[in-house]
Design a protein around this nucleic acid. Sequence first.
DNA 1: TCTTATGATTTCAT
DNA 2: ATGAAATCATAAGA
Length: 326
Amino acid sequence: MRLDNMLLAEGVSGPEKGGGAAAAAAAAAASGGSSDNSIEHSDYRAKLSQIRQIYHTELEKYEQACNEFTTHVMNLLREQSRTRPISPKEIERMVGIIHRKFSSIQMQLKQSTCEAVMILRSRFLDARRKRRNFSKQATEILNEYFYSHLSNPYPSEEAKEELAKKCSITVSQVSNWFGNKRIRYKKNIGKFQEEANLYAAKTAVNAAHAVAAAVQNNQTSSPTTPNSGSSGSFNLPNSGDMYMNMQSLNGDSYQGAQVGANVQSQVDTLRHVINQTGGYSDALGGNSLYSPHHLNANGGWHDAPTPSSVTSPTEGPGSVNSDTSN
DNA sequence: TCTTATGATTTCAT
DNA sequence: ATGAAATCATAAGA
Protein backbone atom coordinates (compact mmCIF):
# COMPACT_ATOMS: atom_id res chain seq x y z
CA MET A 1 0.00 0.00 0.00
CA ARG A 2 2.87 2.32 0.74
CA LEU A 3 4.11 1.77 -2.76
CA ASP A 4 0.71 2.53 -4.16
CA ASN A 5 0.55 5.75 -2.25
CA MET A 6 3.97 6.74 -3.33
CA LEU A 7 3.27 6.04 -6.97
CA LEU A 8 0.08 7.94 -6.69
CA ALA A 9 1.86 10.87 -5.11
CA GLU A 10 4.46 10.86 -7.81
CA GLY A 11 1.74 10.90 -10.37
CA VAL A 12 2.84 7.62 -11.87
CA SER A 13 -0.24 5.64 -11.07
CA GLY A 14 -2.61 8.55 -10.89
CA PRO A 15 -5.10 9.72 -13.47
CA GLU A 16 -3.86 9.56 -17.01
CA LYS A 17 -3.61 13.20 -17.85
CA GLY A 18 -2.43 15.32 -14.98
CA GLY A 19 0.22 12.88 -13.95
CA GLY A 20 3.21 14.84 -15.07
CA ALA A 21 2.04 18.08 -13.62
CA ALA A 22 1.14 16.51 -10.32
CA ALA A 23 4.51 14.90 -10.09
CA ALA A 24 6.24 18.12 -10.95
CA ALA A 25 4.27 19.93 -8.32
CA ALA A 26 5.11 17.24 -5.82
CA ALA A 27 8.77 17.53 -6.66
CA ALA A 28 8.66 21.28 -6.36
CA ALA A 29 6.88 21.11 -3.05
CA ALA A 30 9.28 18.53 -1.75
CA SER A 31 12.24 20.70 -2.57
CA GLY A 32 10.65 23.55 -0.73
CA GLY A 33 10.09 26.18 -3.29
CA SER A 34 8.58 27.13 -6.54
CA SER A 35 11.03 25.79 -9.00
CA ASP A 36 10.05 26.50 -12.52
CA ASN A 37 13.54 25.90 -13.61
CA SER A 38 12.32 25.39 -17.10
CA ILE A 39 14.97 23.23 -18.69
CA GLU A 40 15.60 20.77 -15.93
CA HIS A 41 11.99 20.85 -15.05
CA SER A 42 10.77 19.72 -18.43
CA ASP A 43 13.53 17.21 -18.52
CA TYR A 44 12.34 15.80 -15.25
CA ARG A 45 8.81 15.72 -16.49
CA ALA A 46 9.75 13.95 -19.66
CA LYS A 47 11.68 11.30 -17.78
CA LEU A 48 8.89 10.83 -15.33
CA SER A 49 6.28 10.38 -18.00
CA GLN A 50 8.59 7.87 -19.61
CA ILE A 51 8.66 5.90 -16.41
CA ARG A 52 4.96 6.27 -16.13
CA GLN A 53 4.40 4.92 -19.57
CA ILE A 54 6.59 1.93 -18.98
CA TYR A 55 4.84 1.27 -15.74
CA HIS A 56 1.43 1.33 -17.31
CA THR A 57 2.31 -0.83 -20.28
CA GLU A 58 3.95 -3.34 -17.99
CA LEU A 59 0.98 -3.32 -15.72
CA GLU A 60 -1.34 -3.88 -18.61
CA LYS A 61 0.83 -6.66 -19.90
CA TYR A 62 0.76 -8.39 -16.56
CA GLU A 63 -2.95 -8.02 -16.30
CA GLN A 64 -3.44 -9.46 -19.70
CA ALA A 65 -1.08 -12.31 -18.95
CA CYS A 66 -2.91 -12.95 -15.74
CA ASN A 67 -6.24 -13.16 -17.49
CA GLU A 68 -4.86 -15.34 -20.22
CA PHE A 69 -3.30 -17.64 -17.73
CA THR A 70 -6.47 -17.96 -15.70
CA THR A 71 -8.56 -18.78 -18.73
CA HIS A 72 -5.93 -21.25 -19.75
CA VAL A 73 -6.04 -22.92 -16.36
CA MET A 74 -9.81 -22.85 -16.43
CA ASN A 75 -9.79 -24.63 -19.74
CA LEU A 76 -7.42 -27.17 -18.39
CA LEU A 77 -9.61 -27.74 -15.41
CA ARG A 78 -12.64 -28.03 -17.61
CA GLU A 79 -10.89 -30.66 -19.64
CA GLN A 80 -9.89 -32.48 -16.51
CA SER A 81 -13.43 -32.31 -15.25
CA ARG A 82 -14.28 -34.91 -17.82
CA THR A 83 -12.02 -37.41 -16.18
CA ARG A 84 -12.44 -36.44 -12.57
CA PRO A 85 -14.85 -34.38 -10.56
CA ILE A 86 -13.65 -30.86 -9.86
CA SER A 87 -15.31 -28.84 -7.19
CA PRO A 88 -15.90 -25.10 -7.62
CA LYS A 89 -13.80 -24.68 -4.51
CA GLU A 90 -10.82 -26.13 -6.28
CA ILE A 91 -11.28 -23.78 -9.21
CA GLU A 92 -11.51 -20.88 -6.87
CA ARG A 93 -8.37 -21.98 -5.15
CA MET A 94 -6.46 -22.21 -8.38
CA VAL A 95 -7.60 -18.80 -9.50
CA GLY A 96 -6.62 -17.42 -6.14
CA ILE A 97 -3.13 -18.84 -6.45
CA ILE A 98 -2.71 -17.40 -9.90
CA HIS A 99 -3.88 -13.97 -8.84
CA ARG A 100 -1.61 -13.96 -5.84
CA LYS A 101 1.33 -14.84 -8.01
CA PHE A 102 0.58 -12.06 -10.41
CA SER A 103 -0.04 -9.54 -7.74
CA SER A 104 3.33 -10.29 -6.26
CA ILE A 105 4.82 -9.71 -9.67
CA GLN A 106 2.93 -6.45 -9.84
CA MET A 107 4.35 -5.53 -6.51
CA GLN A 108 7.81 -6.02 -7.85
CA LEU A 109 6.98 -3.84 -10.77
CA LYS A 110 5.73 -1.14 -8.47
CA GLN A 111 8.80 -1.43 -6.36
CA SER A 112 11.18 -1.03 -9.23
CA THR A 113 9.13 1.83 -10.59
CA CYS A 114 9.35 3.53 -7.26
CA GLU A 115 13.05 3.03 -7.27
CA ALA A 116 13.34 4.54 -10.70
CA VAL A 117 11.32 7.53 -9.64
CA MET A 118 13.43 8.00 -6.57
CA ILE A 119 16.59 7.91 -8.57
CA LEU A 120 15.19 10.35 -11.04
CA ARG A 121 14.08 12.56 -8.23
CA SER A 122 17.45 12.63 -6.56
CA ARG A 123 19.13 13.34 -9.85
CA PHE A 124 16.72 16.14 -10.42
CA LEU A 125 17.45 17.60 -7.02
CA ASP A 126 21.14 17.24 -7.60
CA ALA A 127 20.80 19.06 -10.83
CA ARG A 128 18.94 21.78 -9.05
CA ARG A 129 21.69 22.02 -6.57
CA LYS A 130 24.20 22.53 -9.28
CA ARG A 131 24.69 26.23 -9.13
CA ARG A 132 24.63 28.35 -12.23
CA ASN A 133 25.52 31.98 -12.05
CA PHE A 134 22.88 34.41 -13.12
CA SER A 135 23.38 36.27 -16.31
CA LYS A 136 25.34 39.48 -16.19
CA GLN A 137 22.25 41.37 -17.06
CA ALA A 138 20.27 39.80 -14.27
CA THR A 139 22.85 40.64 -11.62
CA GLU A 140 23.00 44.11 -13.03
CA ILE A 141 19.30 44.58 -12.59
CA LEU A 142 19.36 43.13 -9.11
CA ASN A 143 22.31 45.23 -8.07
CA GLU A 144 20.72 48.33 -9.45
CA TYR A 145 17.67 47.70 -7.36
CA PHE A 146 19.69 46.85 -4.31
CA TYR A 147 21.88 49.92 -4.36
CA SER A 148 19.09 52.25 -5.23
CA HIS A 149 17.11 50.93 -2.29
CA LEU A 150 20.04 50.70 0.01
CA SER A 151 18.17 52.22 2.90
CA ASN A 152 15.56 49.52 2.74
CA PRO A 153 16.61 46.70 0.45
CA TYR A 154 13.53 44.61 0.97
CA PRO A 155 11.62 44.38 -2.25
CA SER A 156 7.94 43.79 -1.88
CA GLU A 157 6.34 40.73 -3.30
CA GLU A 158 5.37 42.70 -6.33
CA ALA A 159 8.81 44.14 -6.76
CA LYS A 160 10.25 40.68 -6.48
CA GLU A 161 7.96 39.45 -9.17
CA GLU A 162 8.91 42.34 -11.35
CA LEU A 163 12.59 41.70 -10.81
CA ALA A 164 12.13 38.02 -11.37
CA LYS A 165 10.48 38.70 -14.66
CA LYS A 166 13.12 41.14 -15.73
CA CYS A 167 15.93 38.80 -14.80
CA SER A 168 14.12 35.70 -16.01
CA ILE A 169 14.65 33.96 -12.72
CA THR A 170 12.16 32.85 -10.12
CA VAL A 171 10.80 34.91 -7.29
CA SER A 172 12.47 32.66 -4.76
CA GLN A 173 15.74 33.19 -6.54
CA VAL A 174 15.22 36.89 -6.20
CA SER A 175 14.56 36.39 -2.51
CA ASN A 176 17.67 34.28 -2.19
CA TRP A 177 19.69 36.88 -3.99
CA PHE A 178 18.53 39.68 -1.74
CA GLY A 179 19.04 37.57 1.32
CA ASN A 180 22.57 36.80 0.31
CA LYS A 181 23.24 40.32 -0.80
CA ARG A 182 22.02 41.94 2.36
CA ILE A 183 23.99 39.67 4.61
CA ARG A 184 27.14 39.90 2.54
CA TYR A 185 26.92 43.60 2.10
CA LYS A 186 26.44 44.13 5.77
CA LYS A 187 29.24 41.78 6.64
CA ASN A 188 31.80 43.57 4.59
CA ILE A 189 30.69 46.93 3.40
CA GLY A 190 34.17 47.92 2.43
CA LYS A 191 34.33 45.19 -0.08
CA PHE A 192 31.19 46.40 -1.75
CA GLN A 193 32.11 50.06 -1.87
CA GLU A 194 33.36 49.94 -5.37
CA GLU A 195 30.33 48.11 -6.57
CA ALA A 196 28.09 50.48 -4.70
CA ASN A 197 29.78 53.41 -6.37
CA LEU A 198 29.39 51.85 -9.70
CA TYR A 199 25.70 51.26 -9.43
CA ALA A 200 25.03 54.46 -7.64
CA ALA A 201 26.79 56.39 -10.35
CA LYS A 202 25.01 54.39 -12.94
CA THR A 203 21.62 55.51 -11.81
CA ALA A 204 22.71 58.89 -10.62
CA VAL A 205 21.93 60.73 -13.80
CA ASN A 206 18.48 59.30 -13.99
CA ALA A 207 17.94 59.94 -10.34
CA ALA A 208 19.09 63.50 -10.69
CA HIS A 209 16.71 64.06 -13.50
CA ALA A 210 13.88 62.47 -11.67
CA VAL A 211 14.54 64.41 -8.53
CA ALA A 212 14.91 67.60 -10.46
CA ALA A 213 11.64 66.93 -12.15
CA ALA A 214 9.99 66.13 -8.88
CA VAL A 215 11.36 69.24 -7.30
CA GLN A 216 10.24 71.28 -10.22
CA ASN A 217 6.78 69.87 -9.92
CA ASN A 218 6.62 70.77 -6.32
CA GLN A 219 8.36 74.07 -6.61
CA THR A 220 5.18 76.06 -6.73
CA SER A 221 4.19 74.97 -3.28
CA SER A 222 7.63 74.82 -1.84
CA PRO A 223 8.69 77.78 0.24
CA THR A 224 12.43 77.34 -0.02
CA THR A 225 13.25 76.59 -3.57
CA PRO A 226 16.21 74.29 -3.87
CA ASN A 227 18.66 75.70 -6.33
CA SER A 228 17.99 73.25 -9.05
CA GLY A 229 19.91 75.26 -11.56
CA SER A 230 22.40 72.58 -12.37
CA SER A 231 19.76 70.17 -13.46
CA GLY A 232 21.81 69.23 -16.46
CA SER A 233 24.60 66.77 -16.06
CA PHE A 234 24.91 66.20 -12.36
CA ASN A 235 28.56 67.03 -12.29
CA LEU A 236 29.18 66.06 -8.70
CA PRO A 237 30.19 69.30 -7.06
CA ASN A 238 32.33 69.41 -3.99
CA SER A 239 29.64 67.91 -1.88
CA GLY A 240 28.39 70.98 -0.02
CA ASP A 241 25.27 72.52 -1.41
CA MET A 242 23.89 69.68 -3.31
CA TYR A 243 24.29 67.46 -0.36
CA MET A 244 22.50 69.85 1.88
CA ASN A 245 19.71 69.93 -0.58
CA MET A 246 19.51 66.24 -0.59
CA GLN A 247 19.57 66.10 3.10
CA SER A 248 16.76 68.49 3.45
CA LEU A 249 14.93 66.70 0.77
CA ASN A 250 15.27 63.46 2.53
CA GLY A 251 14.83 64.80 5.99
CA ASP A 252 12.10 66.71 7.64
CA SER A 253 12.26 70.16 6.16
CA TYR A 254 11.19 69.17 2.73
CA GLN A 255 8.43 66.71 2.54
CA GLY A 256 6.73 67.28 -0.69
CA ALA A 257 3.59 65.29 -0.66
CA GLN A 258 4.19 63.72 -4.02
CA VAL A 259 7.89 63.36 -3.73
CA GLY A 260 8.22 61.37 -0.56
CA ALA A 261 8.45 57.67 -1.00
CA ASN A 262 8.91 57.62 -4.71
CA VAL A 263 11.98 59.69 -4.52
CA GLN A 264 13.41 57.87 -1.58
CA SER A 265 15.28 55.40 -3.69
CA GLN A 266 16.66 58.07 -5.93
CA VAL A 267 17.76 59.97 -2.92
CA ASP A 268 19.61 56.94 -1.72
CA THR A 269 21.51 56.77 -4.90
CA LEU A 270 22.34 60.41 -5.00
CA ARG A 271 23.32 60.59 -1.42
CA HIS A 272 25.57 57.72 -1.92
CA VAL A 273 27.34 59.23 -4.87
CA ILE A 274 27.71 62.49 -3.13
CA ASN A 275 29.07 60.91 -0.05
CA GLN A 276 31.48 58.92 -2.02
CA THR A 277 32.83 61.73 -4.08
CA GLY A 278 33.01 63.87 -1.04
CA GLY A 279 35.19 61.49 0.87
CA TYR A 280 37.04 60.00 -1.96
CA SER A 281 40.49 61.14 -0.91
CA ASP A 282 40.84 58.58 1.79
CA ALA A 283 38.19 56.22 0.69
CA LEU A 284 38.08 52.62 1.70
CA GLY A 285 39.70 53.46 4.94
CA GLY A 286 38.29 52.13 8.13
CA ASN A 287 35.97 55.03 8.53
CA SER A 288 35.33 56.37 5.14
CA LEU A 289 32.82 59.09 4.77
CA TYR A 290 30.27 56.72 3.52
CA SER A 291 29.12 54.81 6.46
CA PRO A 292 26.17 52.53 6.31
CA HIS A 293 23.84 55.04 7.82
CA HIS A 294 20.89 52.94 6.86
CA LEU A 295 22.02 50.23 9.15
CA ASN A 296 20.99 50.73 12.70
CA ALA A 297 23.07 50.22 15.76
CA ASN A 298 22.75 46.47 15.71
CA GLY A 299 23.55 46.45 12.06
CA GLY A 300 20.02 45.80 11.02
CA TRP A 301 18.03 47.43 8.34
CA HIS A 302 14.74 46.84 9.88
CA ASP A 303 14.15 50.07 11.67
CA ALA A 304 15.72 51.96 8.92
CA PRO A 305 13.79 54.73 7.24
CA THR A 306 10.56 53.60 5.83
CA PRO A 307 8.52 55.73 3.53
CA SER A 308 6.44 56.64 6.53
CA SER A 309 9.40 58.25 8.22
CA VAL A 310 9.78 60.48 5.22
CA THR A 311 6.25 61.62 5.52
CA SER A 312 6.30 62.00 9.25
CA PRO A 313 6.62 65.67 10.11
CA THR A 314 9.09 65.47 12.95
CA GLU A 315 11.87 63.07 13.36
CA GLY A 316 13.76 62.33 16.50
CA PRO A 317 17.34 63.38 16.98
CA GLY A 318 18.68 60.04 15.95
CA SER A 319 17.41 60.44 12.48
CA VAL A 320 18.66 58.67 9.45
CA ASN A 321 21.06 61.36 8.49
CA SER A 322 22.51 61.96 11.86
CA ASP A 323 25.73 60.19 11.01
CA THR A 324 26.53 62.43 8.11
CA SER A 325 27.31 65.41 10.24
CA ASN A 326 31.04 65.01 10.33
C1' DT B 1 45.08 23.52 -7.24
C1' DC B 2 43.90 27.07 -4.14
C1' DT B 3 40.96 31.03 -3.35
C1' DT B 4 37.14 33.77 -3.93
C1' DA B 5 32.43 34.60 -5.56
C1' DT B 6 27.92 33.24 -5.54
C1' DG B 7 23.51 30.71 -5.64
C1' DA B 8 21.08 27.47 -2.67
C1' DT B 9 19.92 25.27 1.61
C1' DT B 10 19.44 24.85 6.50
C1' DT B 11 18.62 26.51 11.00
C1' DC B 12 16.86 29.61 14.01
C1' DA B 13 14.23 33.65 15.61
C1' DT B 14 10.43 36.71 15.04
C1' DA C 1 5.82 33.33 6.55
C1' DT C 2 9.92 36.04 6.40
C1' DG C 3 14.55 37.26 7.16
C1' DA C 4 19.33 36.69 9.42
C1' DA C 5 23.07 33.94 9.79
C1' DA C 6 25.71 29.97 8.98
C1' DT C 7 26.85 26.64 5.88
C1' DC C 8 27.13 23.95 1.68
C1' DA C 9 28.48 23.21 -3.05
C1' DT C 10 29.88 24.75 -7.26
C1' DA C 11 31.64 28.28 -10.68
C1' DA C 12 35.24 31.08 -11.95
C1' DG C 13 39.55 33.17 -11.65
C1' DA C 14 44.50 33.22 -10.01
